[in-house]
Design a protein around this nucleic acid. Sequence first.
DNA 1: CTGGATCCAGCCCGATACTG
DNA 2: CAGTATCGGGCTGGATCCAG
Lengths: 122, 122
Amino acid sequence: MSANCEFTTVLEILGGKWKPTIMYHLFSNGTMRFSELQRAMPEITKKMLTAQLRELEYHDIVHREIYQQIPPKVEYSMTEHGKGLTPVLMAMNDWGKAHLNHLSTLYGEEQPLNEAASNIEG
Amino acid sequence: MSANCEFTTVLEILGGKWKPTIMYHLFSNGTMRFSELQRAMPEITKKMLTAQLRELEYHDIVHREIYQQIPPKVEYSMTEHGKGLTPVLMAMNDWGKAHLNHLSTLYGEEQPLNEAASNIEG
DNA sequence: CTGGATCCAGCCCGATACTG
DNA sequence: CAGTATCGGGCTGGATCCAG
């Protein structure tokens, strides 16, 4: 019913603590190995990274390329369909910045960016 | 850095099962009473609607106007800051439609648009 | 009419250890 | 290198009842 469906669908896909960040890195770097993604997001555990990548793969957002070799090598990249999410991620990123600024204007000019900065660094 | 902060921030705000839908209705209708929102989203419970509205209010996304009278009357509307989320919601909605279409091309042509159309209508 | 309070099931997510 | 297995805490969200 009513647009709820679209929002719910989108939230199911990019909901989860790390999915947008994963997509952001894949957008920026094109193709990334598992370990590269891990290094790009030091806080995420392997379990979570695996789980979220599997979900994104299931929804045809990311492509998983397996190289049968020792040591193993797996590369992730955005599918064409997944690339369609770019506007959503951009809009989210833009508004996120605006919101962080807005917070500083609301809760004090003294430390306008310190708080935000402390949150920004991973 | 890592833009993780922006995404995490945005997801905290419009994460939750109903927030985007609530905002969508407030965008469309301008100002709505509690009971109107309930009617617009029959599936949501009062507890959840209240909780999510409080969170949106806390983040300065929605404004809560209380009329001191019996019976009580409370009106909700988007703040100027909250209206900045329009591009995000639009992008989400657009991609949600595209994704529903994409699903039908992946998993069967039989009911390509009917299902999506019935869901889109509001 | 607009909530608040309470109870409870389920899931998300993190820490740790193990594997081919 | 790229995962899986297991355990457990904390939060989310639903049902129900109560209140001003």
